[in-house]
Amino acid sequence: MPGLEDLYREIILDHYRNPRNRGELACPPARRAEGFNPLCGDEIVVYLVVDAEGRVSDVKIGGQGCSISQSSASMMSAAVKGRTLDEVRALNRAFKALMTIHESRLEGDEGDGSGTDTPVPDPAVDLGDLAALQGVVRFPVRIKCATLAWNTLTNGLEELAQPA
């Protein structure tokens, strides 16, 4: 059985105890997206302002949930602030890849990845603090907690692509 230290890294606990970018933004100009995890009742609200150059100029996080969903949301907010939408999408892809990493790689067996649909992390994308969440894949029921904020953000970005 994997140990708790794989899941609850110090950086994660720090984001949980001291969440970054917590709050609300006026809509408009901000866009608001809501995400739910129906299994555990976790709820994330993402407020997003994208400026004229297509950069995330401000982001706030609301809602409530467990340490993993809350710290993941906090880290995400810090990671996307000031980034272009393309950079945000690349981060999202890299994070999803981290969350779907193939079990054989956990055992130290690199494999060639052939014959699987496992997304391969892009080494060019630096996940920063978010990389601390990689231990979550050892606890499969918690993966949904970690990805809730990102799925909510993705929905918000899709809405942005539509005319207001």
């Binding site: 467990c66 340490s67 918690r142």
Partner: peptide
């Protein structure tokens, strides 16, 4: 959060339910 409680208790072999 009940998820966190159930996860930590599991490390001591304690099975409790967390959720709705």
């Amino acid at each position: 959060h009940p998820h966190d409680i159930a996860q930590v208790l599991d490390q001591s072999g304690i099975c409790v339910r967390a959720g709705h």
